[in-house]
Computed example of a mutant assay.
Amino acid sequence: MSRQIYSLLAIAAVTLTLTPAPALADSPANQQAAKTAPAPVDCEQLKCIALTFDDGPGKYAGTLLDTLKKYDAKATFFLEGQYVKSRPAYVKRMAKEGHELGNHSYKHLNFTTIEPGAIRSEIQKTQDAVKKAAGVEPKLLRPPYGMADLQVSDIAAEFGMPIVLWTGGSRDWSTKNADAIKKQTLAVAKRDGIILMHDWVKQTVDVMPSLVKTLQSRGYTLVKVSDIVKKENLAAGDVFPLPEGWEN
């Protein structure tokens, strides 16, 4: 969908990792990487769901990563640059263990209320922090609070990034109750769903082993956002998913 349809759109609360250019085939390192690279996920065949974690890396991220590794689950982390700077080891581990890294601003400012230069600075500083910590740059943008308008869309396009929101939220930031978080997440879980969560909420991290096991028992494969949105063919600056009432 073209981003032109989002003129003056303000999306309230309710990294599609672009395929890199192929490496030189004759490189020994690339040949070894090709042998060890995991098979691509096909969400046309699998019942996929993407758990996404905003505002991190939080101080409980290490425990969360342990759980995801134990159950062979992937996730997408929409990171704040200020916490990337203070907790770079978590970011490096996220990338190393095959998770997706997205950009969630540097200090969680509302992009619809600040000047274009400030938006660009928030995005660029986070890109630089993630690159320094993990050696990769995010390919997806999730604006703070899920707030975007045409200006935000245009600036996202300048950085070559689509804007990815969510299909359902865990409300973990509000309830901070493990049972409630699990119940709410299962209530909004659906095939190709993108679920909003936060790794700074201790109860979210605490309930994750039980939640992951339950989702897997219901047939879900926990994947990265890029696996889910691959078929959408998002262009830089596009917003997905569209909130109700904004579809063509």
Rank of each mutant, 00 (worst) to 15 (best):
Q31K: 06
N30F: 15
A34D: 05
Y60C: 07
Q32N: 12
P28K: 09
D54E: 14
L46G: 02
D42C: 10
A29Q: 05
Q45W: 02
P28W: 09
G62D: 12
D55S: 02
T36N: 12
K47C: 03
G62I: 05
K59L: 12
P57C: 15
A37W: 01
A29F: 00
N30I: 06
D42Q: 04
P57I: 02
P40S: 04
K59P: 06
Y60R: 10
K59F: 07
F53C: 00
A50H: 11
L46A: 14
G58L: 06
D42F: 13
P38Y: 00
Y60F: 13
K59G: 05
P38Q: 15
A37M: 15
C43D: 11
F53I: 01
Q31F: 01
I49S: 03
I49A: 12
A50R: 11
L46E: 15
E44N: 14
A29K: 06
E44V: 14
C48W: 05
L51D: 01
K35C: 06
T52C: 08
P28A: 13
Q32W: 13
F53S: 05
Q31E: 08
S27Q: 08
D55L: 14
C48I: 05
K47E: 15
K35N: 08
A37C: 09
T52Y: 06
L51G: 01
D26P: 11
K35E: 12
A39D: 08
P40M: 00
E44K: 14
N30Y: 12
D26L: 12
T52D: 05
S27W: 09
D54S: 14
C48E: 01
Q45P: 10
V41L: 03
P40H: 03
A50N: 11
D42V: 04
A34Y: 03
L51F: 01
T52A: 00
D54F: 07
N30G: 15
K35D: 15
G62E: 10
A25C: 04
D42S: 13
A25I: 08
S27K: 11
P38A: 10
P40K: 02
Q31R: 13
I49N: 09
C48F: 04
T52R: 06
P28H: 14
I49H: 02
D54M: 10
T36K: 08
A33R: 01
D26H: 14
Q31Y: 01
A25S: 14
E44C: 06
L46I: 09
L51Q: 05
V41H: 08
Q45A: 15
C48H: 08
A33Q: 12
G62Y: 08
D55C: 10
A37Y: 03
A61R: 04
D26G: 09
P38T: 01
G62M: 09
L46M: 14
G58F: 03
D54H: 03
A29C: 07
I49D: 02
D26T: 11
N30C: 01
P57N: 06
